[in-house]
Design a protein around this nucleic acid. Structure first.
Length: 261
DNA sequence: ATGCCTCAGCTCCTGAGA
């Protein structure tokens, strides 16, 4: 079973690339669940028919211009929840559903802009609310995956210039403390369960030849619960779509689980 | 230097992303 996350930075623009990427998977190892972020379209504009034609179900939670998340799945998704219950938010950032016995929480974490900004304050509040939502979901769903665009790096390994970017957005102690608190709920960073190529990132700035120079950050993560950890056999960043014409600034991250015991 | 790209929208500039 393969579960993936991809911030597409406008599904309107990236839909052909998403469909091509799904179609390019090996027939014996398709992507079973794909969490998308930054749809940047309202619910009525979601291209549901295109995913149906490709053999996928879809659940979506859109918003005009900004944000918007979706779960694309080969099996139907059930028990869908949009955003964080009990947390008032006018942004569409979270979608949760159960697919093939796995509780999947797809999330587009706030950017935060700068540590001294109002948006950073919102990011901290949002992170606290998300943690309580994940904590509650784990009680009833031990097989759980939390994945998406976290907009936070774990440590210097995730940053192309850890000295120059120390303390800047995505790299602050406050953000990393929140990220570790999520892990401390009983989750594991799939990517670091395996040896990885040095300087592995999931996002590169569009400017200054960021991708070509591999000046990036690893900010897209797939955390798996303790119960799922024994099933994880691989986690990789697929850099290929970042080489497409008109790419998203993010690359997909994919985790592979073996069949349930 | 606060821009360098990219995208959406009250579209020929601005805000936001990260």
């Amino acid at each position: 079973m393969k579960i993936a996350t991809w911030n597409v930075n406008s599904l309107n623009v990236r839909l052909p690339q998403v469909l091509a990427w799904l179609a390019a998977q090996p027939p014996d190892a398709p992507v079973d669940v794909l969490a998308l972020q930054e749809l940047k379209l309202s619910d009525d504009k979601f291209p549901a028919a295109a995913f149906t034609a490709a053999g996928y179900h879809a659940q979506w939670f859109g918003q005009k211009t900004y944000n918007g998340v979706a779960l694309i799945s080969r099996s139907p998704a059930t028990d869908v929840v949009k955003n964080i219950p009990g947390f008032e938010d006018d942004m569409a950032r979270v979608i949760t559903a159960t697919v093939d016995g796995v509780r999947v929480i797809g999330a587009y974490f706030p950017n935060g802009q700068a540590p001294d900004s109002d948006k950073f304050v919102y990011k901290m509040r949002w992170l606290t609310a998300l943690r309580e939502w994940v904590r509650a979901e784990l009680v009833t769903h031990p097989n759980l995956v939390l994945l998406g665009d976290y907009n936070i790096t774990f440590d210097d390994l995730d940053v192309w210039d850890p000295v120059g970017l120390a303390g800047t957005i995505h790299c602050t102690d406050e953000e990393r403390t929140h990220l570790r608190a999520l892990v401390d709920l009983g989750l594991h960073d799939s990517f670091r369960l395996f040896e990885q190529p040095p300087k592995s990132y999931s996002w590169w700035d569009y400017r200054m030849l960021g991708f070509q120079k591999n000046r990036g950050m690893r900010i897209d993560h797939i955390l798996v619960s303790e119960a799922l950890r024994p099933r994880v056999t691989a986690c990789t960043v697929d850099r290929a779509p970042r080489k497409n014409p008109q790419p998203s600034d993010h690359a997909p991250v994919v985790v592979t689980l073996d069949a349930s015991v």
